[in-house]
Computed example of a mutant assay.
Amino acid sequence: MKPSILGHEHILRLLPSLSSQSLLFTGPEGVGRRAVARWYAYGLNCAKGFPGCGDCASCRLEEHTDYLEIAPEAQTKTGRKARNLQIRLEQIAPREEGGESLLEWLSTYPRFRAKVAVIDGAHLLNEPAANALLKVLEEPPTYARLVLIAPSRELVLPTLASRSLELAFGPLPEETLHGLTRDPEILAYAEGSAGRVRWALDNPALFNQLVGRAQGVLESLAKGPAQTLEALGPLLETEGGLNYLARKLGQSLPPEDPRRAAALLAIHQAQEALSAYVGEDLVLSWLGLRLWSVMAER
């Protein structure tokens, strides 16, 4: 069943005319890059062409046989949450153990017209996996299309990015998201991401928990560093918590207030440190002290 797309009309108009076998979808999380990749796969395989008729044998498939997504595994083999997310070699090239790899999947002809493989997190390919994928990009089967998904072109290895045509996805305008909700709290959390809006609507209890935790941090900033540190802990456990806190802090201080820029910079630096796998306890302690000291300035 072809997915419904919110926004990105210019990309949807462009995709059917592209002949490139390797595409790079860049942009923020949740704006629709995966949904467009699935839309692209259904259109390529539809008996009537784009945008997909919804009635042919290909379009009626819930799980399309000619569509494959490869992403980092969120859990380790022991069942624990993976801290070092990466796409490994065995996901790209055949190995003695494990499930079907990308190369094995591409070695057979499509059931319909084209096989579309999505590398969801192309910036997280480890070196052996990236080298194996490079060989595919250099000589893909004629029936294959590969879609690499990453936050930006700069984060993808140049050898992979140079062989892919980039399509940049931006945050959706708030007016576009009004088709889903007009709740100002949800829209502030979403930051142009339809995926975040849908998550908030589908999980109201968790979203209300996020709002409450962010408010708790804001209130703690007037009490002391220990209280700020205590309030930040639960917020860091919440998906998108720091982004939402930054948005709320930005709204609570006028643009000319120097504390606003300093607080937002501190949150950005904390996010970069977490992305670099700096210990969460260390980041939490630094951010709590930094935010409190910034907001204590008058």
Rank of each mutant, 00 (worst) to 15 (best):
L137D: 13
L155M: 14
E154V: 14
R259M: 01
P204Q: 11
N45W: 03
V197C: 03
A132T: 15
C59L: 12
C53I: 13
P16M: 06
V136C: 08
G216P: 01
Q86L: 04
P184S: 14
R298H: 11
T142S: 13
P234M: 00
L289E: 02
V156I: 15
F207S: 13
L291Y: 02
L61W: 05
F169K: 15
A144K: 06
Y244P: 11
E127S: 07
R33G: 11
T228M: 01
L157V: 10
L284K: 00
L229H: 01
A263E: 04
R198M: 04
D120Q: 09
G27P: 07
E63Y: 08
S193W: 01
E69K: 12
L291M: 00
L229V: 10
A117E: 15
R290W: 00
L253A: 06
D55P: 03
Q21C: 02
P225H: 10
N208C: 07
E297A: 11
R95W: 05
L68I: 15
P3C: 13
E280M: 00
L124A: 12
P171F: 06
L180V: 07
P141R: 05
W39E: 10
L23N: 01
E138T: 00
L172T: 14
S20Q: 00
P258M: 02
L12H: 09
S285N: 03
F112E: 11
L23W: 13
P16A: 01
T26L: 05
I5L: 09
L232V: 05
H64N: 14
G30W: 08
I119H: 14
S19A: 04
A41P: 04
E174T: 14
I186S: 05
L249A: 04
S193G: 09
C53H: 06
E127N: 11
Q209Y: 01
R88Q: 10
V294A: 03
G224F: 02
I267E: 08
L253E: 01
A263P: 08
E272Q: 02
E9I: 11
S107V: 02
G27K: 05
S275D: 13
L18D: 02
R153A: 14
F25N: 11
C56G: 07
Y40I: 10
K2S: 03
L210S: 07
G121Q: 02
I70P: 07
G279C: 01
G241Q: 06
E256H: 09
G79N: 05
G99L: 12
W292Q: 00
P72M: 08
G233A: 00
S101L: 15
L89F: 09
P110N: 06
Y189V: 12
L157S: 10
T228N: 06
L12C: 12
L167W: 09
N243P: 04
E219Q: 11
E73D: 10
I92D: 09
G195K: 08
E104D: 05
R83P: 00
L6K: 10
P141F: 03
R290I: 03
L14S: 12
L12S: 09
R34C: 13
K77R: 13
